[in-house]
Amino acid sequence: MNDLELIDALRTTRRVDDATIATVTDRHALSALREGITMTDRHTTPAVETPRRGRRLGRRGMAAGALGLVLAGGGTAWAVAQLDRGPTLDGLNCAESMTLRPDGDVELERSADGRAASGDDVADCATIRQSAGMPPLADPTAFVYHGTHFVVAGAGIPSGVMESATASAPDPERAAMLELEAALGDWVEGPSRLCLTTEQAQRYAEDTLRRVGLSDWTTRVSTPPTTPESGPCAGLTARPELTQVEVLAETRKPVRLPSDAVARQVYTTAEALEEQVARQCLPLAEAARIATQLVGDQGQVSPVPDEEASCTRVDMEVGGSLFVTLHGPAVATP
C-alpha cells in the first residue's frame, strides 16, 4: 500500500466504537497504528519487504511496514499488522547485513520482514526468507535491539549493535504465548469467525491455555458498555501483563457475508483452511503445502513442528495480511 492508497483508505473509514475494534484486532493495534503512521517506509509492502538497498530503522523499533487495512470493504473497521508485538506477537527483521548509523538508527540490507510463530527467531526467519524467495542467512544470529527482534547473518552485524543487544534464544514460554494469540485471533474455527457465547468463549480460552501449557494464566469475564454494535458474540484478548485472557461478554454481532467490514477473501480462505486442513488429519508438511496454495501472496504461512500432536492444527489471523500458523507432526496419526 503506497501513501496515496493509505490516505484514500483512511478517508473512507468511519468511526468504530471500542467494543467493535476489540473483536477484530488485539490490544496492540492502536499503538501500532500510531507508530505505523509516523514510521512507515513509503515503499514497504504488507508482509514481506521487497529486497532493496537499505531501510532506516529508528531507536523505537522497526518501521511498521505492514500498516494497512485489516478488513477490506467499506472501511468500517481497520487497524494494522504490527510487526513488533512485545512479549506475544513479535515481528522479525531477517537481513543479510545491518549498518549502525551515527544517530543510532540502523539500516538493513537484503532483508525480509515477517511475524514470529515458534518462539525460535532463527527458524522463523528461515521460513520468512524462503517464502520471500530469498537465500538463507549464513551463520544467522538472533538478537533483540532496542526492543525489536532481528536475525542477521553473522558477518553482517556491526559490533556497535551487539554491545547493546540481547541474544534471542528459542523460548518455550514465548512460543506458548504466540500460539495463544494465534488461537484467540483465529478465523478458521476460532472466536474471530464464530459467534461464541460468553460461556463458550471462556471455555475456549481455558482449553487453549491448557493446550499451550500456560498453567499460571487465568481467565476473566468483563462486560463492555452496550453500544449499537453490541450483540451475543463474545471477544477474547490476551493480557500478558496480567497473565490473563480477558473474555469480553456480548461485545459484537455475528459477522456474515456480504459484509462491508470483512473482505470476502477472509471468509473464503478460512473456510478452505477449515475444510482442507482443520477437518483432515495431515502431517505438517502437507498442511503447509495446502495452506500456502490457499493463501498465495496475500499473507504468511508459518509451520511449527509439534511432535506431540496427532494431526496438524491451523490458526488464521487477519491484520493487513493473512497470517496462518500451523502446529503439527512430521507424521500424522489419525
Rank of each mutant, 00 (worst) to 15 (best):
D8L: 14
A9C: 08
T12W: 14
T12R: 15
R15E: 13
T20P: 01
R27C: 09
H28N: 06
M39C: 07
T45R: 15
E49N: 14
G54M: 09
R55Y: 13
R60K: 13
A64N: 08
G65H: 13
G75L: 12
P87T: 12
T88K: 12
N93S: 11
T99Y: 14
L100R: 09
E109V: 13
E109M: 09
G119V: 07
D121H: 05
V122I: 14
A123M: 04
D124N: 04
C125E: 04
A126N: 01
I128Q: 00
Q130D: 05
T141N: 09
V152R: 02
I157S: 00
I157L: 02
P158G: 01
A165V: 09
A167M: 07
S168Q: 05
A169F: 14
P170C: 03
E179D: 07
L180F: 10
L196R: 05
R203K: 12
E206M: 06
R210V: 07
R211M: 06
V212R: 04
R220Y: 03
V221D: 01
T223A: 08
P225T: 09
V245K: 00
E246M: 06
K253S: 04
V255A: 06
A261M: 13
V262H: 06
V277D: 02
V277R: 00
P283E: 05
A291L: 03
A291R: 02
Q293Y: 10
D297W: 10
Q300A: 06
E308L: 08
R313P: 01
V314G: 02
V318K: 04
V318G: 03
F323A: 03
